[in-house]
Design a protein around this nucleic acid. Structure first.
Lengths: 248, 248
DNA sequence: ATGGCGATTATGTATATACATATTGGAGCG
DNA sequence: CGCTCCAATATGTATATACATAATCGCCAT
């Protein structure tokens, strides 16, 4: 193989041994060769099979366990888990990047900027318990001449002090916040909605036309940072999520 | 601390040392104390700081690197990465579970079942290159008396032979497939759409009403398995995605 | 039969050590 | 001045070993 004289094992590529063990087993599981409930060979058996130390085998199996493909039980061994509830990884790009990927010129335009003491609704949206200053922003993302998305945002000024000095006239609050505020958690809600008159007017579509609403709340170290609604006309936007069980 | 006589290090809980190192560093990064670009202490420094072996430190740092929080460069050290493009983990439950979580009785009803040689459209939806038998299914998921979601599904019979013997009269194809076919990859597309007459009729809503469309393609070991469209009336459904950067 | 208890077993975590590999910084030379 | 090459350094991967811990099996006494 490669490092630290091993015998032969044949077919050595340049990937590490524990990666090879990992993908071998993963393949067996995903191909169905080892059905859910099947007992995976014990560490000492794999040790013999791959002619390596238990630590190496252990590392691979631990990773598979963390990826949720197998379950490990002391004294009993490791077992292929039942198919997990499906989950998908959703990439949420910067809107600028998205627009530019379409080959269209991107532009952001502020519609409204309001600094105020948080209303009850603001606090509920942000998840704040106590009142405090917030910044309410509304803006439009353009793809060429057409409105691409409407953004309605609340920023918790207690958590992001610097924001009150920024006009956000042509720079979108999203990219401004990222890089300035390290965020530790986010929650997204995605649903369909009909455009009301205000939205229809801003996005230049018919009232009642279907829109995709992506709502996001962000926390940094337990403190609410921002709440934002992105409203896309149905035609302009598809969220794509990809998923592969383990982490290759 | 705990295992294998270490000295004191104080404040020992019951978590493992490498977990503690991992969460310490994670905290520093997420709190902003270590900004993007900041060089993390070398392995040998952390070794001294935590009074442990390099392997233990290495394990923690490797995990942080895999989680994308830091970047490791040989000879140079490890650095806090720029804030990544945001990603969310989307849980896609079984519809039955979702309905029952609402406290409503669940029921599935098949509308149509058609076995046929794949049309060009079928192949394009499934991602098939060669023609072959497919099963086209349409069904309704009910929450109580109200339609909750419309399902339009294609199953690649070359990949899931057993499906041609199943009527799918009252059992939804989703739960049937899961547990029978180990899936290795899935792709989701989420968008808003207006209900056409057929959909409006099935879901008992007004034509033109906004709906959430979740489209999923699934592969098992490179072979296309199924393509499915779930169509939810806007009021009945919100997708929720949560995200925390590293993997705790 | 049955209930408890200890031996056995497989995994969990940590150590010290060894060598590989990529990269950087500087010494030496044309 | 610039190029090559080498040594130093930090990470990457693997080994052998040690002891902890949880779960199970089977023995033994009741």
């Amino acid at each position: 193989m490669s490092l630290v004289e091993t015998d032969d094992v044949e077919g050595g590529e340049s990937i590490s041994l524990h990666q090879r063990i990992l993908s071998d087993i993963r393949e067996k599981i995903l191909s169905g060769a080892w059905a859910p409930g099947h007992r995976i060979p014990f560490e000492h058996e794999l040790t013999a099979q791959y002619n390596c130390s238990r630590m190496t085998v252990n590392k691979a199996l631990s990773q598979l366990a963390k990826a949720g493909l197998i379950e490990r039980r002391r004294r009993s061994g490791s077992f292929v888990r039942q198919p997990q509830s499906q989950a998908a990884v959703l990439e949420l790009h910067d809107i600028r990047i998205e627009v530019e990927a379409l080959g269209l010129p991107y532009r952001y335009e502020r519609l409204e900027r309001l600094k105020r003491r948080s209303s009850a609704e603001d606090r509920s949206l942000l998840g704040l318990s106590a009142p405090g200053p917030v910044l309410a922003l509304e803006g439009l993302h353009f793809a060429g001449e057409r409105p691409f998305a409407l953004e309605q945002r609340l920023i918790n000024l207690s958590a992001v002090a610097g924001a009150s000095e920024e006009a956000f006239l042509e720079i979108a609050p999203g990219p401004w916040l990222i890089g300035r505020v390290p965020w530790s958690e986010a929650e997204h809600r995605i649903r369909a909605m009909a455009a009301d008159d205000t939205i229809a007017d801003a996005l230049d579509i018919d009232p009642g036309a279907p829109c995709l609403l992506v709502e996001r709340r962000t926390w940094s170290a337990e403190h609410p940072v921002t709440h934002v609604r992105f409203i896309y006309p149905a035609e302009s936007h598809t969220l794509v999520a990809r998923f592969t069980p383990s982490q290759g």
